[in-house]
Simulated assay, not measured.
Amino acid sequence: MPASEPVRTASRRTKSTIRAALLLANIAVAGVFIHQSLALSSAPVASTGGAQDRTLGAADGAVGQGVTVFDDEVPAVVNLDPALLSALRTAAKVAAGDGVVFYVNSGWRSPAYQEHLLRQAVSRYGSAEEAARWVATPETSPHVSGQAIDIGRSDATAWLSTYGAAYGLCQIYDNEPWHYELRPEAVEHGCPPRYPDPTHDPRMQR
C-alpha cells in the first residue's frame, strides 16, 4: 500500500464523521423547532385586563388539536348546552359511518376568552366594525352561553350542511360555514334562512 493511502483513508473517514455529525445536529435542531411549534400551538394565552390579568387556557374554552365532540375532559365540549351536545353526538355517530369525524375548533368560551378573541379580531381586521362580522362580544356571543360550536374540517361541515337539519343542527351565518347552533324546529321544517354575517343577527344588537 502506498504511504499516502492511509492518509487518504483517514481523510475520507474524517469527512464521513463530520457529515454524520452535521446530519445529527440538523436533526436535533429540527426536533427543537418542531417541539417549539407544537408547544406554541397549544400554549395558553395571557389576558390583558389590568388587575384581572391571568392566563387563559383550556379552562376558558381554548381547544387543542384533535378534540372531538366526544371528549368529556375538555371544558369547551362539556360546557356546551346539553341539548346541543346531545344532538351533535347523535349526528356524529351517524357521520362516523361515512368516515366523518366532528372535530371541535371552538365550543363553549368564558367571557374573558371571548373578550380576548374580540381584541385579536379588532387588531387583525383594523376596526371594531369589521371585527364584529366575525367575533361577538362576551355579552352577545352564543359561544359564551354554550349554544354554539365551530366544527373543524371541511368534510364535517359538508356532512352537516347536507344532514344537519335532521338533528336540528344549523349553520347560522353565510360567512361562517363552521358555526353551528341547535334549532330543534329544523327537524321538521328545515333550517331557517342564514344571516350574511353576525352583524345582521338581531341577537348581536343588544
Rank of each mutant, 00 (worst) to 15 (best):
D72N: 13
F33Y: 11
E139S: 13
T55D: 02
R124K: 15
S110H: 12
P202M: 01
R124G: 05
V32W: 14
K15Y: 14
G31N: 04
Q36K: 04
E129Q: 14
H35P: 06
E129V: 14
W134V: 00
D81A: 14
D155Q: 09
G50Q: 08
L88T: 05
T140Y: 13
S86Y: 13
P198S: 09
A112M: 10
N105Y: 13
P75V: 03
L182E: 07
I34L: 04
P2V: 07
H116Q: 13
V101A: 13
V7Q: 05
S141I: 04
A87M: 01
Q114G: 13
G152K: 07
A43W: 04
V122N: 09
Q120K: 14
A43M: 02
V69H: 02
H179R: 07
G57R: 07
I151N: 10
A165T: 02
Q147I: 00
E129M: 10
A96M: 05
A39E: 10
W134K: 03
S16T: 10
L182C: 11
T157Y: 08
A156C: 11
A158R: 15
K15W: 15
E176K: 15
G49P: 01
V74C: 10
G146I: 08
D174A: 14
A121T: 08
V45D: 07
A136I: 02
D197N: 15
P196I: 00
W178M: 01
R153Q: 11
G164P: 04
T48Q: 09
L182R: 11
Y167R: 07
Y113C: 01
Q147W: 03
